[in-house]
Design a protein around this nucleic acid. Structure first.
Lengths: 329, 329
DNA sequence: CTACTCTACTTAAGCGCGCAACTGAAGCGC
DNA sequence: GCGCTTCAGTTGCGCGCTTAAGTAGAGTAG
């Protein structure tokens, strides 16, 4: 809040050295022989003035910034996105990189963003719409990681929908539930996720030689949910793959009010592992994302890309999700 | 991804004018008389080269950046923080400002951040710990908005805990529930929020001349929750203020399993207005935050501060929360 | 015809920093 | 005492942009 910024010149003057020396000391520049006494003098001066180099000047001079921007459309970000962020941030921190999140609602034009910030890399977390995706690719950003919400979008898939659906079905079948239902969400914004997961369910059913899943949209209110549950029961369904835990928990609650025993009469498997999932009665079996693994994968890609290395050929979807077996199936 | 960045020089050369003219045109500089023909030439050249000014150079030159950073500790960010972000972003966008979120776990030192970015302003969303808070204040940031999680922390309060607690009690009392219980969360990270809300509850009880609330920690599992509900019932409690909707919904579920009628035997009021709240049986009455109002308030403060104006003397807590009356009380 | 104004630009001075290249002094072998 | 290397710094350029100040030419007033 002072009037004029403190610059490296001020530090140099106070320390009685040149500006270059200040820069060398504060950046721990290699190939430079500076005795500890001088270093200490400089560091003291910098500290006493609360000196912080001006990022813009630093970046301009080095020709490279340390900012990674994560661009996310205005999807409802649950607890997994922040967790992935934390994991990415932690992994790239040793390289001096800092992660920032920027929300990007459908209507907004990205172009103005680059007037404000010069990232080394950006992580696109799901599609931002055709024009923005395109302009992102054409822009002069060092490195771009394109993440997809599901196998149906372009980009790397963090949350593999196919595999998720398969895991759900295989678990139900293992426990003896052979007539599968799918609880489809009543929210357009997540259609992409849902489609991929349903495909996984269908694929697994085919592979296991059981009947096609009975797909019903699950309205997010008690009456509607109850109706869907009744329909499934009439169709002989005894195992439900829910799009996510919210739906799964709703199903469990509604079913219990109707005297349906879980998992004997009806088994349910969710997705997400919400905190509530562990504490429902019975505790919900669910396919959980592993944000730490996801973040580490993204961060590695990022670091490889920035360094100009070819990204390692690891299997992206390896270990990103896991089945948590509890008692609802 | 091209080898060399496209600079204003390239655009100038292509358009057949000087670099200064390019800058004047692209920034719509006032007090400059440039015929439309020339403007068009420049704009075409810029577009055909996909020119984006280098933010760092721009900022260095203008001595001012357009970046607002929102710093948030690693609290679980629900749906309200993103909503506040969107509201802030939208309000400041007409001024050319861009909002970025940066998470700041307790251990992390903020200092390195300013090597990466030079914000005009930062919004501190809750305390980042004593050292970081202090270093933030000493740093050379243009403007700092300090937001508090509750009345118990330093800074402006967006989510007024006192008022929240009061609203809960007054609603219960209006509906004839005079013996109040308070459901305390089993999570250390939210103690600050909870304390303020509880104080509001206690204050309202005192003012209305009813007994002190019976405070019980509500374990987030069915058995524990059931035990708490039993204790309240034994104490004659017929109206519960829950710390948040999650707890409120858990209470409703547990109570129903025990044959307790809601709201006749036991009324419950939550906080947050989760999506599930509207669809529980009975629908949950709750104190809802209004992220749009919060965001607009923060944005106004920000714009005033950046412009050097004294912030308007509006009542910060006005309209930030509201009671949503449904059927659980 | 000169002096002035207005238009439509251009020239050039920074912004603060990093880093390559240079320099002066000290140390050392012969 | 000479040339060589190492130490401990300094000088100065350039990153790409904004913007104050300047200027050539056309138009107009007197």
């Amino acid at each position: 809040m002072s009037d004029r910024r403190v610059t490296a010149d001020d530090v140099a003057r106070l320390a009685g050295v040149s500006r270059a020396t200040v820069s060398y000391v504060l950046n721990d520049h290699p190939h430079q022989t500076i005795p500890e006494a001088t270093r200490e003098k400089v560091r003291r001066a910098a500290a006493s003035l609360d000196y912080t180099p001006l990022a813009s000047a630093r970046i301009l001079s080095r020709g490279r910034s340390d900012v990674v921007v994560m661009l996310i459309p205005d999807l409802p970000l649950g607890s997994v996105v922040p967790a992935v962020m934390d994991s990415v941030a932690e992994t790239i921190a040793p390289n001096g990189l800092e992660l920032f999140l920027h929300r990007c609602p459908p209507g907004r034009d990205i172009k103005n963003l680059w007037n404000a910030i010069t990232p080394v890399a950006v992580i696109r977390l799901g599609s931002l719409g055709p024009e923005n995706d395109e302009s992102l690719r054409r822009s002069q950003i060092g490195f771009l990681v394109e993440l997809a919400n599901s196998e149906l979008e372009q980009g790397l898939v963090l949350f593999p929908g196919l595999e998720t659906g398969e895991l759900q079905v295989r678990h139900l079948v293992e426990r003896g539930h052979l007539r599968i239902g799918y609880a489809w969400p009543d929210d357009d914004r997540v259609t992409n996720f849902a489609s991929a997961r349903l495909r996984g369910v269908q694929k697994a059913c085919a592979e296991l030689g059981i009947a096609e899943p009975v797909v019903l949209t699950l309205p997010f209110n008690p009456a509607g949910a109850a109706a869907s549950v009744d329909s499934w029961r009439e169709a002989g369904v005894d195992g439900i793959c829910a799009f996510n835990d919210e739906l799964a928990l709703a199903i469990i609650r509604v079913a219990q009010l109707r005297g349906i025993e879980i998992p004997q009469d009806l088994a349910v498997v969710g997705v997400d592992d919400l905190p509530q999932a562990a504490f429902s009665v019975p505790p919900l079996s669910t396919v959980a994302p592993r944000p730490d693994k996801m973040g580490q994968f993204v961060a590695r890609r990022l670091l490889d890309g920035i360094a100009g290395r070819e990204p390692g050929s690891l299997d992206p979807s390896d270990g990103f999700i896991r089945l948590i077996e509890r008692d609802s199936a």
